[in-house]
Nucleic acid binder design. Structure first.
Lengths: 270, 270
DNA sequence: GTCAGTTGTCCTATACGCTATACAACTACC
DNA sequence: GGTAGTTGTATAGCGTATAGGACAACTGAC
C-alpha cells in the first residue's frame, strides 16, 4: 500500500465513516446518507465528502451506484479474532501455531530506559529486540515489538524466532515463565506500523504492553503489541463472586476460541 | 476546545516523534536532533519541522532552548487511572463514588439492532438510553452510552442516574446482576465524543462494550464506554495456573488501586 | 573572546486542499 | 413518462500548508 496523501478533512471523515461501518453502526447493505447530506452534517464541502468516500470505495467497503446512492458492502471479512482472557497466554500459543509471522527486524540493542526498568536490567545491559508482524489468513493483524535480555535471547536463533512462538522458545531455553503484568490501551498508527499492517497513518490501534517474569522475579520478556481493532479484540466473561450484597466479580474461564468466534460480529468487531 | 487544524506532513512528523518519545526511544532529558537535521532526515522543510515541534511543545513534551537545542522533558505524569481486572466491577462501583458525572442525555428510544440483539429484546421494545461523561479531578476521562430495557429503566429517575452509579440503581431495583460479557477494542473520537472529552477529532480511544445479564439470562444493561487512553487504561496480573508443561494462565486478583498507580508511568500511560 | 551551531522570526513563491457552483447522467418511485 | 434525488464531472477562486531562503539572538565549547 502506497502512502496515500489523503488530506486532512477528507481523511478524518473517511476514518470516521470507516469506524461506523466496522462497528456495525451503519448496517451492511443499508444506504449511506447522500453526499450533500454528509457534507451538511459534517460541515464540509461535497468534494471533500467524495474524497472520503473514494477512499472507502477503493478499499471495497462501500458500493456506489449512480442515481441510487452509496451502500455499505457486505463484508467478505474474515471474522475478527477474539482473544479470550481467562486462558490468555494459552490462546496466544495456539495462535502462534495457526497464524503466519513476518520477522521484520532482529538485533541486539541498548533498550529504551522504560523497557530496561520494567525488565529490571542493569544499566548498559543489552537486549535482543525483534519486530514481528502476525498474519491471519495472509492478512496482518498485529505488530509486535519484543525485548528479551541478551543472556536469554542468545539461546535461540533468528530463524527460530521466525517460526516458533517466542513463549515456546523461552520455555525451551529453561527460562520458565512465572507471572506476567500487562496493560491495555489505545494509540494511533505511526507511519511504519501503518505500512506493516496495511493501514492508513493515524488509524486506531489496540495497544498491549506485557512484561513476563521468571521464577526469580527477573524480567524475561517485554512485549509491546499493536493490534488492528477490526481484526482483533479482547473478550471476557465476568461472573459474580461473593455474597449478594458484596458486588464482587471475577473473570471466568469462559468459552473456547471457537465459541468465542461465534459472538455476534457487531459486538466482537467494536 | 478549538479544533486545531494541524496540517498533513507536520501532523505526521509530530505523531512519529510523539511515539518515539512515549516509547522511550528518545530518552527523557536527551537532546533532539536539530531542526535542520530533522528537516533533512524526513524530507520536509524546516517550517514543517517547527510546526510539528510546536505541537509537542504545547503539550509539554519537549523543552526548546534558544541556541542550545530542544530537549525531551521529564514527564510530570498526571497519573492515569489504572483499572484492575480481577475485581473489575467492584472497582467501577468505587470509582462511581469518587468521581464526578455529567449526564448529557436521557431518553427512551428504539435501540440500534445490535444493542437490541445483545440484550435479547423483542422487536420494537424500547430502551432507556443515557449518555454520561465521567470526570476525575474535574477532567473528563470516559464517555458512557448505556441502554437499559424500559421496564427496568422506569424504576429510577433521571436525577438518580446523575448521582448514583448505574449498577447500584439496577440492584436497588431488584434486577440482580449475575454475569457480564465484555469486549475491549480501540476506535477514534467522533466530533461529539471529542468535544465531550476535550480531545481533537480522530484521537485514539479505548473502547469497551459490556452486556450485563440477570439471573434469568435476560439482558439488564448494555454499556458502550469510550476512554481517554492517557487518563485511563486496563491493567492486570497473570499468574501461572496448571502444570509446568501446560502453559495455562489466569488473571490474578492483583493489587489494589493504590499500588497499581505506582506502575511505571511510561508503561501505564502508553 | 571566538565561532560553530542552535532556535526564533520574517519574507516570498509555489502547491494544493477546500469551498462553492453548475450541470450531466442515471435511478427509483409515483 | 415525469420528477425528485442521487452520483459523476468540471470549473473558478480562496485560504493555507509547504518550500526555500535570509537574518537575528542566543548558547556552549574551545
Amino acid at each position: 500500500m502506497d502512502v496515500s496523501l489523503e488530506p486532512l478533512k477528507a481523511r478524518r471523515l473517511a476514518l470516521l465513516l470507516r469506524e461506523r461501518i466496522a462497528s456495525g453502526e451503519i448496517a451492511p447493505g443499508s444506504r449511506l446518507a447522500s453526499e450533500p447530506a454528509l457534507a451538511l452534517e459534517h460541515g464540509v464541502s461535497r468534494v471533500t465528502v467524495r474524497r472520503a468516500l473514494d477512499s472507502l470505495a477503493s478499499d471495497g467497503l462501500i458500493d456506489r451506484r449512480v442515481g441510487a446512492g452509496t451502500f455499505v458492502r457486505e463484508p467478505e471479512a474474515p471474522k475478527p479474532i477474539v482473544a479470550d482472557f481467562a486462558n490468555m497466554l494459552t490462546h496466544l500459543v495456539e495462535m502462534g501455531r495457526r497464524t503466519g509471522v513476518h520477522l521484520l527486524s532482529f538485533s541486539y540493542v541498548h533498550p529504551p530506559e522504560a523497557v530496561a526498568h520494567s525488565l529490571g536490567l542493569a544499566a548498559g545491559e543489552r537486549t535482543q529486540r525483534s519486530v514481528r508482524v502476525r498474519l491471519i489468513d495472509g492478512q496482518p493483524f498485529s505488530y509486535l515489538t519484543t525485548h528479551v535480555p541478551e543472556r536469554i535471547g542468545l539461546t535461540y536463533s533468528e530463524s527460530d524466532l521466525a517460526s516458533v512462538p517466542l513463549l515456546s522458545l523461552l520455555e525451551r531455553s529453561g527460562a520458565a515463565v512465572e507471572r506476567a503484568s500487562q496493560t491495555i490501551s489505545a494509540t494511533l498508527a505511526s507511519p511504519d506500523v501503518a505500512e506493516a499492517l496495511g493501514l492508513e497513518i493515524g488509524s486506531p490501534l489496540l495497544s498491549l504492553t506485557r512484561v513476563v517474569f521468571g521464577p526469580d522475579g527477573r524480567g524475561v520478556e517485554h512485549l509491546h503489541a499493536l493490534y488492528r481493532p477490526d481484526r482483533y479484540s479482547f473478550q471476557m466473561e465476568l461472573h459474580r463472586a461473593g455474597d449478594a450484597g458484596e458486588r464482587r466479580w471475577s473473570p471466568a474461564p469462559a468459552r473456547t476460541a471457537e465459541s468465542a468466534d461465534a459472538v455476534p460480529t457487531a459486538v466482537g468487531a467494536a
